[in-house]
């Protein structure tokens, strides 16, 4: 089992400045899953509860000179502490910029190693970051879990496949920061958020307890997938009436999710996505949030990076 690659400059800045801070907010531990062509950062794919999150990079988006081999069809997966990886990467970057001269001098190598830690007789696996300066080399070893067995790897691969299904209707959220500050304030009022998405481009979120009902409605959002014209008779009614009418017509879906999960998903604005879409999976299986990235300086989607998460739906009766 071998993995060795050089992080590109773009890869370093993507991970250090954008993705690792965002992924760290999602959860301390994630699985890093490496295949011949892709690197994935996966949260909560193997255990049922919590937000499932998938960040996928084509190898060229992060690495060059990428070499991987294993007996599981050149696939390797292990659990890693995101904040440790972020810290190690940050300090490697500062060393790179401090000592680096020329294009080749400050390359950052990342590889899988087994080492004997101090006071131990058992060799342990590490993800090792190596920076070669002019006169010195700095190596940082980030401890990782034992690589996943063939069975677990298959499980992860299956879960990843299942996590890729798209909702029929997706609406684009106009302003992530604003939605985040709104949800952060709403958090104080209740725990359960009901989210309705209509084919007309309506997103309606609401918290309802015995003492208070508090909600927000965003209309005329950009719709991707199934869409419909908003009926004229709905124009002058309350947000709640509009939502329930759309549900009755079969033009909308609604699910209940944890406010905390919803707020957490919004932390992905740290990864600086260019746009975000919300959608409800068929049969109301989950609330899906898809973040898109553009090729810098264009409005074209960067297909080498993808990020999405799936919020578990809560049964209103059980809460």
């Amino acid at each position: 089992m071998k993995f060795k690659a050089f992080l590109t400059e773009n890869g370093v800045s993507l991970l250090e400045k954008r993705f690792l801070p965002a992924l760290d907010k999602m959860g301390k531990i994630c699985h890093l899953y490496l295949t011949r062509d892709h690197a994935f950062f996966l949260h909560n794919l193997l255990n049922g509860d919590g937000i499932q999150s998938v960040a996928q990079f084509r190898k060229e988006a992060l690495f060059d000179d990428y070499r991987i081999s294993s007996q599981n069809g050149d696939r390797i997966a292990f659990a890693v502490d995101v904040s440790l990886l972020h810290r190690a990467l940050r300090s490697s970057v500062s060393i790179c910029t401090e000592f680096g001269t020329g294009a080749t001098a400050n390359r950052l190598q990342i590889k899988l190693v087994k080492k004997l830690p101090a006071n131990s007789t058992q060799p342990m696996p590490f993800l090792s970051l190596e920076t070669k300066g002019f006169k010195s080399a700095v190596i940082q070893d980030v401890p990782i879990s034992k690589p996943l067995s063939r069975t677990h790897l298959l499980e992860l691969q299956t879960a990843l496949g299942l996590a890729q299904d798209l909702p029929r209707t997706l609406v684009q959220v106009p302003d992530l920061n604003q939605l985040q500050s709104f949800v952060d304030r709403m958090k104080h009022v209740g725990d359960l958020l009901s989210v309705s998405i209509a084919k007309y481009g309506d997103l309606h979120v609401q918290i309802s307890t015995t003492l208070i009902t508090l909600g927000a409605e965003f209309r005329k959002l950009l719709v991707v997938g199934d869409q419909a014209e908003a009926p004229a008779e709905d124009r002058n009614v309350s947000a709640q009436t509009r939502s329930s009418r759309a549900l009755l017509r079969g033009d909308a879906q609604t699910v209940q999710v944890s406010v905390k999960h919803f707020a957490k998903s919004l932390c992905y604005h740290l990864a600086k996505p260019d746009c975000a879409f919300y959608g409800i999976a068929p049969q109301g299986a989950c609330l899906t949030v898809i973040f898109q990235f553009f090729i810098p300086g264009s409005r074209q989607m960067d297909k080498s990076i993808s990020l999405h998460c799936r919020l578990p739906v809560l049964d209103p009766a059980s809460s």
Partner: peptide
């Protein structure tokens, strides 16, 4: 604006 709004009902 007509396109977004916040509402609340307090008991």
């Amino acid at each position: 604006s007509l396109d977004s709004g916040i509402y609340a009902e307090m008991r």
